[in-house]
Amino acid sequence: MTKYCRYHRNHGHTTEECKALEEKIEELVRAGHFRRFVRKDDNSFRSHHPPRSDHRCPPCDSRHGKRLNQPANHDPQPARTNVTPVDPPLRGIINTISGGFAGGGSTSSVRKRHLRHIQSINHITHSHHRRRMPPITFTDDDFQGLDHQQDDPMVITVEIENYAVKKVLIDQGSSVDILYWATYQKLQLSDTAMVPYNEPIYGFSGEKVSTCGYIDLHIIFRDGAQTKTIPIRFLIVDAPTSYNVLLGCPSLNTLGAVVSTPHLAMKFSSPSGDILTIYGNQRLARECYMASLHPQLPILQTNHIERPPSSEIT
């Protein structure tokens, strides 16, 4: 009877006699597969097939001196198989700043309804609900920073209540827009303009940060003579910081901004359809970074809130 190997799909030896298959099984066992088929005290990782004699060979035809059942070509090499490693399970999740109004509201029922809305595929596949934006690209001409080999945060200037507010941090990992209490006072906003809000926000390690309230303001983003104004709902936080304002995902999405950290720039479309560009200020970004490393020291030039050039004050 002709011998056939199902592993090589060729004649010459049986599957039980296949040395290549035995070595492949041992390789998979060493890689951690087939654990439930291997005894713990079996360190050889050998399969339980009968051993193959290294001297066994197909019989010869005595008249011609040729081996019977031997293919004309050499035996093909064993098929290569990629063994996918098993990744270890995650030990946990590290989040960014979360809370506020980005999840649909402050109550758990509203947030659950918001989550169900996102998970419903009917709400995200209809073309008439799809948001449309003009193409936005970045080129080498957008490298405007002082130091191109940088890992600086994106820090810009915006206009709030007819003030030019510098040291505004762009944080794409934050679910809230934050106006710090010191900045609130510098803007000379009345206490009655603030709406009470006692829901905390959560930082990187899950720590709670209390809020004083919230306020709705219109923010102007300027690129030369062109501007774009959007409404932003700020949470007001009384905390020591080197920044005046933190702009998170809600305001960036409302603005339609695309941020490029290598270029330290963000682009968005104007009401007329032009693409506007705002560049980050590396000097102020590094000042804020250094101040945040030494919070116990007095922060120099932290406020950086001034009237725009049209109505500058001293």
Rank of each mutant, 00 (worst) to 15 (best):
T2H: 13
K3H: 11
R9T: 11
N10S: 08
H11Q: 15
H13I: 08
K24V: 10
F37D: 04
D41R: 14
R46L: 04
P51R: 13
D54I: 13
K66M: 14
A72D: 09
D75T: 03
P78I: 12
P85E: 02
P89L: 01
R91W: 05
T96C: 06
I97M: 13
S98Q: 04
F101Y: 10
F101T: 04
T107C: 02
S109A: 15
R111M: 09
K112L: 15
R113I: 12
R113H: 07
H114W: 15
S127N: 01
R130G: 03
T137I: 10
T137G: 10
T137P: 06
F143Q: 09
D147I: 15
D147W: 06
H148W: 10
Q149I: 10
V155T: 00
T157R: 15
V158I: 15
N162V: 03
K167E: 12
L169Q: 06
S174M: 00
S174G: 05
S175C: 09
I178W: 13
Q188P: 00
L189R: 14
L189T: 08
D191Y: 01
P196M: 06
G203L: 14
F204K: 06
S205Q: 15
C212Q: 14
I215A: 10
I220Y: 01
I220V: 11
D223I: 01
G224Q: 04
A225H: 14
P231A: 11
R233K: 08
V237S: 14
P240V: 08
N244C: 08
L246R: 06
G248L: 03
V259R: 04
T261Y: 02
P262W: 04
H263C: 11
A265S: 08
M266D: 14
P271G: 10
I275N: 09
R286G: 00
C288V: 03
M290V: 10
L300N: 07
T302G: 00
I305F: 02
E306I: 06
E312L: 09
